[in-house]
Design a protein around this nucleic acid. Sequence first.
DNA 1: GCGTCCAATGCTGTTTCGGTATGGCCGACA
DNA 2: TGTCGGCCATACCGAAACAGCATTGGACGC
Lengths: 101, 101
Amino acid sequence: MADSARVADVSLTHIQSFVAVAEECNVGRAARRLHLTQPPLSRHIQALEDELGARLFERTRGGMRLLPAGEAFLRHARRILAEVDAAVLTVRDVAGNRAGG
Amino acid sequence: MADSARVADVSLTHIQSFVAVAEECNVGRAARRLHLTQPPLSRHIQALEDELGARLFERTRGGMRLLPAGEAFLRHARRILAEVDAAVLTVRDVAGNRAGG
DNA sequence: GCGTCCAATGCTGTTTCGGTATGGCCGACA
DNA sequence: TGTCGGCCATACCGAAACAGCATTGGACGC
């Protein structure tokens, strides 16, 4: 059952939320950027940390600071989002070319 | 707004569903493999096709056959899932090393 | 025509999720 | 020291999403 069982409970939404928070170092600001409010975004981060079984941010007085695990995850997260983006574009390209030509 | 807006409505669940159906060429069988029933899985595929704006499968009498767009997406889909898997493992490794050592 | 196998759809109960309101923490400032 | 302001976390609630059951509809084999 090694498969990709771990993937199951991680969601792209959580990954996007994580990246936004990592870049803003501030949940409220990241929330606005994602057209969301602070509480659900805060929960996204908690859920992600829970799913991964590791703390990704240090909660400081001024906001959120990446922990080593978070920095490691950030690199993967960006790659994942880029990969998804590429997948979408590729499909549209293939389908578009065949449909249009 | 180019960003990764397209990522938004695609979910890892849908991607996993897609891969399972692509490999089984049969929704019911894929559903069982995913510990799901046929109707929701059928809807996953429809939702994914809708989000991507392209048909991924040809519905044949005997089941589901990948269309060119689907084959292209499959390659990306596998990479995405592998990437997520790697991300999870990396985080656990980093956090584990620091926690344990 | 009838039974079979397949995917798609209607419906419903449950779960998930986002938003509002609030709490708790901590530093700045007078 | 007391108040204010910024920050993340939590409680609660209404709405949307989701899975499962039951059923439909299409296509082949007998």
